[in-house]
Computed example of a mutant assay.
Amino acid sequence: MSNINHFLENNQSSVVQNYHFLCDSSMILPIREYDVKHKLDNIKIGIGKTNVRITPIPGSFKITDGPIAEYRIENDSLGKFASYFMDIKLNENFGISDFKATLRFMKDYNGIKKVSFKKEISATENYLIVEKLNKNW
């Protein structure tokens, strides 16, 4: 965990900057029983043996209850900003060997929500969400 914390605090890549931008409580709309906290408290981490997945909003919920929260980002042609996941690969010493992020938009097509846009952001790519808000994604 200390490697992950150090990474989140010190890495300046677009992947991590986007994550911090989305963690801000102004970007999260609670839907049910979800207490949107200060930016640093909105961290959800799933840890495996060789990977770590981090997201600002919990990605798992009972389907019958629906999502806990959603992002306040919407685009006329793409729909609602649905998810942002950072995937971190760990080496045998639990150091970070690689990372990337994936963002998705969802749109309603005849009552069925489908992914309308998916973008994978590499560790070295310059792709800031804050710069895309009023432009083309």
Rank of each mutant, 00 (worst) to 15 (best):
E33P: 00
E33Y: 07
Y34E: 05
Y34C: 05
D35A: 11
D35N: 12
V36N: 03
H38M: 07
H38R: 15
H38A: 13
K39L: 07
L40M: 06
D41V: 00
I43F: 00
K44A: 12
K44N: 15
I47M: 14
G48K: 15
T50G: 09
V52P: 00
T55L: 08
G59P: 00
G59D: 04
K62R: 13
I63R: 14
T64Y: 11
T64F: 10
D65Q: 13
D65F: 04
P67Q: 14
E70V: 09
E74C: 09
N75P: 00
D76S: 12
L78G: 03
G79I: 11
K80S: 05
A82V: 01
S83M: 06
I88V: 15
K89R: 06
N91M: 03
N93P: 00
F94L: 13
I96H: 01
S97G: 02
F99A: 03
L103M: 14
R104V: 01
R104Y: 01
F105I: 06
M106K: 15
D108R: 14
D108I: 10
I112G: 02
F117C: 12
F117A: 14
K118L: 12
K119H: 08
E120S: 12
T124M: 06
T124C: 04
Y127H: 10
L128T: 08
L133G: 03
